Computed example of a mutant assay.
Amino acid sequence: MAANPITVGFDLDMTLIDSRPGIKAAYEEIAARTGVFIDAELAITRLGPPLERELANWFPAERIAEVGDLYRSIYPQVAVPPTPALPGAHEAVAAVRRLGGRAVVVTAKHEPNAKLHLSHLGIEPDAVVGWLWAEAKAEALREYGAAVYVGDHTGDVRGARAAGAVSVAVATGPCDAEELRAAGADVVLPDLTAFPAWLERYVVAASGEVSASADLA
């Protein structure tokens, strides 16, 4: 194990998992149960922010808490089974472990449902923290000492920067590479398949900086 093992944070939706099929099915079920129209195809193009922000487009404020509870209750049966891992997800977590590090998932999703997704797909991070969005993600990233945070949304970039972590963005979600760079991402990758090679280069470079500092002391 490395003398100073790295901790890497990962977002969940559209970073580690392609949650569009499952979330689409969940919205369609909510629409069927409530009789309220939801454009599920549109909703899944803007994943990232907390559920309640999307529900506000379809329900009056006084119903959002009730519908949110309904959504979360049906989610394990409706949304988890059809949701696949994104390419490179397993390998990205394995790359952190191979370097002696820790992988922590920090997501805006309801934490129990986030854990169900990971368990269903056989992705085993060292910790999972839910209910955190954008800058609030910095709370968990700082708590676990994350040096790097990987996400697909500009909100993830803001969370990484608020935590003082390197922001690695993957263009697999609603934000394209140009938008992620404009938000301040330090690194933009097409997807997670490119992450293990980047991480190895990053750790080698970081080790070199530590050695150089030690020589100068």
Rank of each mutant, 00 (worst) to 15 (best):
A146L: 13
G151D: 09
G151L: 05
H110N: 12
D152N: 12
K115M: 11
R53L: 11
C175Y: 13
T45H: 06
G130W: 02
R161A: 15
P196T: 10
A2T: 15
A31C: 10
A127Q: 05
G208I: 10
A197R: 03
G35K: 12
A162S: 13
G101C: 07
A127N: 07
K137T: 11
P60N: 11
A95S: 15
R98C: 04
H153R: 00
R97Y: 14
D156S: 03
F195L: 12
V166W: 05
A147P: 00
K24W: 06
Y75S: 03
A108Q: 02
G173I: 09
V210S: 13
E178H: 09
G145N: 09
N113S: 14
L42H: 04
G130P: 01
V104N: 01
A2G: 10
P21V: 08
V203F: 07
Y149A: 12
I6H: 04
R53P: 00
E139I: 05
L199A: 09
S73T: 14
T172M: 04
L132E: 14
G68E: 13
V166Y: 04
A177C: 12
I44R: 01
P87W: 09
E139D: 13
L12T: 07
G88H: 05
C175L: 00
I74D: 00
A114V: 01
Y27R: 01
E29I: 09
A183G: 03
R201M: 14
A103D: 01
W133G: 02
V36T: 15
R63T: 04
V188H: 07
L47I: 15
F10Q: 06
P60I: 10
D191F: 01
K24Q: 14
P196F: 11
V187R: 08
A171W: 10
A2Y: 12
K137W: 08
L51T: 03
R20D: 12
A127E: 14
R102N: 14
E29Q: 14
L47Q: 01
V96C: 01
G122Q: 05
I74N: 00
A3M: 11
I38T: 04
V36S: 10
V203Q: 10
P174N: 04
L55M: 06
S213K: 05
G68Y: 09
V168Y: 05
E29S: 08
P112G: 10
I123K: 03
L47A: 07
A169V: 05
P174F: 09
D186N: 12
D186T: 07
P112F: 08
A108N: 00
G68P: 07
A127S: 13
P112A: 12
E143K: 08
E209V: 11
L118Q: 04
V204S: 06
R142I: 13
N4H: 14
G145M: 10
P112T: 11
V36M: 09
G184S: 10
A89R: 03
E62W: 10
I38W: 02
A56E: 15
P196Q: 11
V93I: 15
K115F: 01
G22N: 04
V166F: 05
L180R: 00
L180T: 06
T45W: 07
R63K: 14
L141W: 01
G48A: 08
R181I: 13
L199C: 10
A3P: 00
L118V: 05
F10C: 06
S207H: 12
T107S: 14
A214H: 07
A95K: 04
P5W: 06
G155N: 13
A138Q: 04
T83C: 03
S19C: 15
A162N: 03
P190N: 09
D156Q: 02
E41N: 13
A103I: 02
